[in-house]
Design a protein around this nucleic acid. Structure first.
Lengths: 348, 348
DNA sequence: ATCCTCTTTGCACTCGTGTGCAACGCAGCA
DNA sequence: TGCTGCGTTGCACACGAGTGCAAAGAGGAT
C-alpha cells in the first residue's frame, strides 16, 4: 500500500514503454543493453519489484508449491520441511504450508490449495494423503508423496526402502540372539507402517520365527507409551522391540526404563526407524535405520519440477536405501557391524 | 492447465452475468437468493473455485503471511510453526514459509517476500530479524517478531517474559542452595539471550552472587556440548548451569552425564528455558521456564491481523509470562514448589 | 394509475504484468 | 540508392476477478 511502484512508473522515469520494463525482468527477452541499463537504474531508484501475483496470473504459473504436513512433533518432519524450503527457494519456487486438518475434513484444505493455483503439491504423511493426492492429480496438479505411497497411477512418491530396512533390522536382531519380538505400529493406514511391519514379519518367518507381539502406537508418543506398557508389562514380554519410527521408539525406551524399571538393552533391545536427531542423543543412542532426508527431498523436488516444467510427464516412484546405524539401544551382534564414515553400521 | 474453469463459464451456464458470480463468492454482496442458488449449482457442477491469485491482484491483499524461521531442529520452532499455520488457516490466511538464509544474504529473501505481496510477516528468530524487520516495516508491511524484540518503532513483537523467567530461575537455584553458577549463552545478538542472561546475573547480584561463568553455545547442540566441556571440565566447575534454551540444555545434560561422568542433579543442576517436548521426556526431566507457544501465537496473529485489517495501526509489544516447571534435572528447594494442574511449579 | 423506494443486475473499468504482432531503425550488401 | 534482414520497441490484448454506477425490476403507498 502507500504508493506501490509499478512498471508504469519505472517506464515513465526511464523514458521507455512498459513493455520494455517487463522485458528487462524476463530472462531471454529481446532488449538493448543501454535500454536495460536505463530501466534497471530507474527500477533501483524507485525500489521497484515485479509483482509476483500479477505475473502468476498472466503466466498461469504461480511458482508456489503447496506442502501439507502433520506430526511436526516428530523431528523427521521439521527436518524435511527445512530442506524442502531451502531446495525450493534455491530453484525459485516458494512454499505454501498447510497443516493436515485435525477435523479430518480434506475438502476445505483441497479448496484452498486449488484456489492458490499452486504449481505442485508435496504431501508428507498426512492421514488424508491418498484422498488428497487423487483429487489433486485429477485436477491436473503434479503431486509427490513423501514417506507414503499410493497405488494410483499418476502420483509420484519418495519413500525409504522400508522393506529392506525392516528386513535388515530383523537380521540384526536375530544375529544378536533375540527370539521373542514385539512391534509397535504406526497408523494402520500408512503404507510405510505396512511395509515395515510386513517385511519385518516376513523376514523373521523366513528364519523360523512366526510370532511377533503387536501393539498400536499410532505414531504418537502417548500411544507408544501405552503400547510399551501393554507389551513390556506382560510376563512373557519380548526381548526385542521394533518401533515403526524413532519418535515412538524414544517413548518406548523412556517407558521401559523409567516406568517399568527395565534396562535397555540388557533386558530389552529397542530399535527404530528414521535416525532422527534425538536418536543420536547419548541418552537414547537408538539403533535405527536412517531415512536420508536430503536425498529424499532432492528426489521429490526433481520429480515435481520435471513434471511442472514439462521435462517429463510420467509419475516417478523412488525408494531410497538407508544404513542400519548401530548404537547402544539394542544388543550388538558379534559380527557384521563395521565402522563407516564415523558411524557403526550393519553390513552382514 | 487443461481447461481451468473461470467465472465466465459459470456465468454462462447459470445464465447470469459474470458480476453475479463474483458477488456470490463475496460475503455481504447484494444478490438474490434464487440467483445465488443457480450460480452455486453451476459452480458445483463445473467444479469452479475462485482464483485466489486474480482476487489478490484486484483486492490488493493476498491473504498470505510470510513466515521466516531458522533453527527448525529446536523443537520450539516446529511447535510454533504448526500453531501458526493452524491459526492463520482458521482465519482465512495462508502461510508462505521462508527459511533464514544460511548465506546471511537477507536482500534476496526480502525481494522474494515483497514480490509476493504478502499482507504481513512473522519473523521467528532468525539472525537477520532486525534488518529484515526494518526493511519490511519501511515497505509498509506489518511485521511481528516472535521470540525477539527490536527497539525500532513500528515493529510488533511477542516474547516470553524473559527477564522475570530468568529471575525466577536464579531464585529457584539459590533456594536449592547453589552458589557457583554457569551460563550457556545463545547467540550474542539475540535480544532473548541478552534478556535472560542480564536478568539472571542481576538477580544473583542482588542476592550477593557476582560471579557467573559464561560459555557460548550459539543456540546449537554442538556448540552447547563444547560449552559444557569447557564449563564442567574445569576444577572449580559450577554446580548449577542455566542454559539459554532447552535445546542446548539437553546437549549440556548429555555431555555432563555421558562424557564427563557427572550425575545430574547430584553433581550439577541444569535448567533451561522454553519447556519444549523433549524437556518432558523422562530421560531429561528438565526443569525449565515454559514459553507458552499457544498464547504467543495467538497474540502474534492478533497483532498482525489487527494491523492488516485496519483495526489498529499501532505496533504492539507483548511479553507473556510462563511458569517455572520443576522436574528432576535440578536440585529441588525445600519450599516453594507446588503442584498445579498436574505439574510441579515454582511459586515461592 | 402514478410515483417512489429498495433490491437486484449488468456494463465497464480496474488491478499489474506478459507477449504476439507489426512498425521502426540501422547496418550490410548489391 | 534501394533492398533485405535483424534486433528493438511500442501497441494492444489477455489473464481472472472485484466493484461503482446506473438501469431495470418489484413492490408498496397514495
Amino acid at each position: 500500500m502507500a504508493g506501490r511502484i509499478t512498471s508504469v512508473e519505472v517506464a515513465r522515469r526511464a523514458g521507455v514503454s512498459r513493455s520494455a520494463v517487463s522485458r528487462c525482468f524476463t530472462p531471454g527477452a529481446s532488449i538493448a543493453d543501454d535500454t536495460r541499463k536505463r530501466v534497471m537504474d530507474a527500477a533501483k531508484a524507485l525500489g521497484y519489484r515485479p509483482n509476483a501475483i500479477a505475473r502468476s496470473l498472466i503466466a498461469g504459473r504461480s511458482r508456489m508449491i503447496a506442502v501439507v504436513v502433520a506430526y511436526l512433533e516428530n523431528q523427521f518432519y521439521p527436518d524435511l520441511l527445512a530442506r524442502l524450503a531451502d531446495e525450493l527457494q534455491a530453484r525459485g519456487y516458494h512454499l505454501l504450508l498447510f497443516t493436515g486438518p485435525s477435523d479430518g475434513n480434506s475438502d476445505a484444505l483441497f479448496a484452498q490449495i486449488l484456489a492458490y493455483q499452486v504449481d505442485g503439491i508435496v504431501l508428507a504423511s498426512t492421514s488424508l494423503s491418498s484422498a488428497l493426492a487423487d483429487e489433486c492429480n485429477a485436477a491436473g496438479i503434479p503431486v509427490v508423496l513423501i514417506n507414503r505411497t499410493n497405488d494410483r497411477a499418476g502420483v509420484s512418491s519418495v519413500t525409504a526402502d522400508n522393506r529392506n530396512g525392516a528386513r535388515a533390522l530383523a537380521d540384526f536382531l536375530l544375529a544378536a540372539g533375540h527370539r521373542r519380538f514385539g512391534y509397535v505400529a504406526g497408523s494402520a493406514g500408512s503404507s510405510t507402517n505396512q511395509d515395515r511391519e510386513t517385511a519385518f514379519r516376513e523376514r523373521l518367518a523366513e528364519r523360523g520365527v512366526t510370532e511377533v507381539l503387536r501393539e498400536d502406537g499410532l505414531y504418537s508418543q502417548a500411544g507408544a507409551a501405552e503400547a510399551a506398557r501393554r507389551l513390556l508389562g506382560r510376563a512373557d514380554r519380548p526381548d526385542a522391540v521394533f518401533c515403526a519410527n524413532d519418535h515412538m521408539a524414544i517413548a518406548v525406551m523412556d517407558t521401559a526404563r523409567h516406568e517399568l524399571g527395565l534396562r535397555v538393552p540388557e533386558d530389552v533391545s529397542i530399535v527404530g526407524y528414521d535416525d532422527v536427531g534425538p536418536a543420536r542423543w547419548p541418552s537414547y543412542a537408538l539403533t535405527s535405520v536412517e531415512q536420508p532426508v536430503g536425498t529424499m527431498v532432492d528426489l521429490a523436488v526433481a520429480a515435481l519440477l520435471d513434471r511442472i516444467e514439462g521435462r517429463e510427464a510420467a509419475a516417478r516412484i523412488a525408494r531410497v536405501p538407508g544404513e542400519l546405524v548401530v548404537r547402544a539401544s539394542a544388543r550388538r551382534p558379534e559380527h557384521g557391524v563395521v565402522r563407516v564414515d564415523g558411524r557403526d553400521v550393519w553390513r552382514p
